Simulated assay, not measured.
Amino acid sequence: MSGPLLCEGRVVIVTGAGRGLGRAHALAYAAEGARVVVNDLGVGLDGTPGPDSPAARVVAEIRAAGGQAVAHGGDIATTDGAASLVRTALETYGRLDTLVNNAGFLRDRMLVNLDEDDWDAVLRVHLKGHFLPLKHAAAHWRAEAKEGRTPRARVVNTSSGAGLLGSVGQGNYSAAKAGIIGLTLVAAAELGRYGVQVNAIAPAARTRMTERTFADTMAAPGADSFDAMAPENVSPLVVWLGASASTGVTGRVFETEGGRITVMEGWRPGPTADKGARWTPSEAGDTALKLLAEAEVPGAVYGAG
């Protein structure tokens, strides 16, 4: 006999949910009883508009399986689009419990070849596309809390190993994903008083963004082998983080891929020295070298060497 559904009665927004990780998250939430707002602008890998409606297809999948879902095709990196996203949840289902920020695309170039437009476009969709839906959802939850209806709200942001370690050829993407971690920490600290928990994941999975950039490691295995890079492997943690069962977990970053979940530990003080007075440049350099000799070696940048 199966147990109670983890997200029964909850209303969940998933951005960029037409394909890949977002689609997997939307389907997984619906399978656990959530009513899902499926957002997708329907753009190509580089952010240009596409001819189809992937959000509508995912909604159809959810409804065919007996779930409830509604499509939203607005641009969540605009104020109007983000506001209408939250409004869609409230007008359709009367509440909002969880926001999963997932939308994004790539425009990979080495730094010396990276155009300003490609920098701006990637920062816009990933970082601004996290900030604006978070801002509008948080405003709703704050108003609810002030009216005495403190929610058990959840936000799951999507960073990347590129944001934790860097990735050669992805300076714009790495900067955006690192920014998402900073935004997550601030939001967790600011919004806790309103009943909102905010966490981030750094997933590794086969999507339109990764299957070309990391073709060898993202390839699907044979039929009888565990597909470690399937996006569906990431969704169980995302569903739990978006459920009321995750009470008390906030301001954390999880790396997840295949069957592995890792709690990532961010910047912490390492070796230190204090002269109690101003260093000369030579003294500062000698001291820095001594401290580096005692410090842990940082993880390698993806694609380096």
Score class of each variant (00 low, 15 high):
254 F>R: 00
254 F>C: 00
254 F>P: 00
254 F>I: 02
255 E>K: 11
255 E>A: 15
255 E>R: 15
255 E>Q: 15
256 T>M: 11
256 T>A: 13
256 T>L: 03
257 E>R: 04
257 E>P: 00
257 E>K: 01
257 E>F: 14
257 E>A: 09
258 G>I: 04
259 G>L: 09
259 G>T: 08
259 G>D: 10
260 R>I: 09
261 I>D: 08
261 I>F: 07
262 T>Y: 03
262 T>K: 02
262 T>H: 10
262 T>E: 12
262 T>I: 07
262 T>G: 02
263 V>M: 08
263 V>A: 14
263 V>C: 02
263 V>S: 15
264 M>Q: 14
265 E>H: 12
265 E>D: 10
265 E>V: 12
265 E>L: 14
265 E>C: 02
266 G>L: 15
266 G>T: 12
267 W>D: 09
267 W>S: 07
267 W>P: 11
267 W>C: 01
268 R>P: 00
268 R>C: 02
268 R>I: 09
268 R>V: 11
269 P>G: 07
269 P>S: 08
269 P>V: 07
270 G>Y: 01
271 P>R: 12
271 P>M: 13
271 P>L: 14
272 T>C: 12
272 T>W: 08
272 T>M: 10
272 T>K: 14
272 T>A: 15
273 A>T: 01
273 A>I: 00
274 D>K: 02
274 D>H: 07
274 D>I: 00
274 D>N: 07
274 D>A: 09
274 D>Q: 01
275 K>W: 13
275 K>V: 01
275 K>L: 15
275 K>N: 05
275 K>F: 12
276 G>Y: 08
276 G>W: 13
276 G>L: 11
277 A>F: 08
277 A>R: 13
278 R>Q: 12
278 R>E: 13
278 R>P: 05
278 R>V: 10
278 R>Y: 14
279 W>C: 03
279 W>I: 05
279 W>H: 13
279 W>F: 15
279 W>E: 11
279 W>S: 13
279 W>N: 04
280 T>Y: 04
280 T>E: 04
280 T>R: 02
281 P>Y: 06
281 P>C: 10
281 P>I: 08
281 P>Q: 07
281 P>T: 03
282 S>T: 13
282 S>F: 05
282 S>D: 14
282 S>V: 03
283 E>I: 03
283 E>H: 03
283 E>G: 09
283 E>T: 05
284 A>K: 09
284 A>H: 08
284 A>P: 02
285 G>Y: 07
285 G>H: 11
285 G>T: 05
285 G>P: 00
285 G>W: 04
286 D>W: 05
286 D>G: 09
286 D>R: 12
287 T>C: 08
287 T>S: 10
287 T>Q: 10
288 A>D: 04
288 A>N: 06
288 A>C: 07
288 A>Y: 05
288 A>P: 03
288 A>Q: 08
289 L>E: 13
289 L>C: 10
289 L>R: 11
291 L>A: 06
291 L>Q: 10
291 L>C: 10
291 L>S: 12
